[in-house]
C-alpha cells in the first residue's frame, strides 16, 4: 500500500474537514471529535453534494445540500437513504495524516 502525505492533523478542524485535490477529483478528509481521520470521495451519492462542507458528528457527516447522512467508515448513506461513496484508507503518524489513494 502506498501512502500519500495529506498534511498535519492540526490543519484539519476538529469535527470538520479539508479537501485534498487529486487528479481523479476532490477527496474530503475528515477529523472526528475523537481525532480519528476518515477520507471520502467528495461527492454525495445523492446529487453529488460536497460532503467536505457538511456537519460532522460521531463518525458521520450530513451532506450540505439535502441532509443525507453518510457513515464515514463505510461510505454508506445511513437510515432510510440508500447509496454509497468511495472511501480511502488513512493513518496518522507523528501528527501527520496520510492517505492511500
Amino acid at each position: 500500500m502506498s501512502w500519500t502525505e495529506v498534511g498535519p492533523l492540526a490543519d484539519i478542524p476538529n469535527k470538520g474537514s479539508r479537501v485534498l485535490v487529486t487528479k481523479d477529483g476532490d477527496v474530503a478528509v475528515f477529523r472526528t471529535a475523537g481525532d480519528e481521520v476518515f477520507a471520502l470521495y467528495d461527492q454525495c451519492p445523492h446529487k453529488a453534494g460536497p460532503l467536505s462542507q457538511g456537519i460532522v458528528y460521531d463518525k458521520r457527516v450530513a451532506c450540505p445540500l439535502h441532509n443525507w447522512v453518510i457513515d464515514m467508515e463505510s461510505g454508506e448513506a445511513t437510515g432510510p437513504d440508500e447509496g454509497c461513496t468511495r472511501t480511502f484508507e488513512t493513518k496518522i503518524e507523528n501528527g501527520v495524516v496520510y492517505i492511500s489513494l
Partner: peptide
C-alpha cells in the same frame, strides 16, 4: 483563509 482552500493538491 485556510478554511476556504484545499489542504493540499496532489498530482
Amino acid at each position: 483563509k485556510e478554511n476556504y482552500i484545499p489542504i493540499k493538491q496532489v498530482s
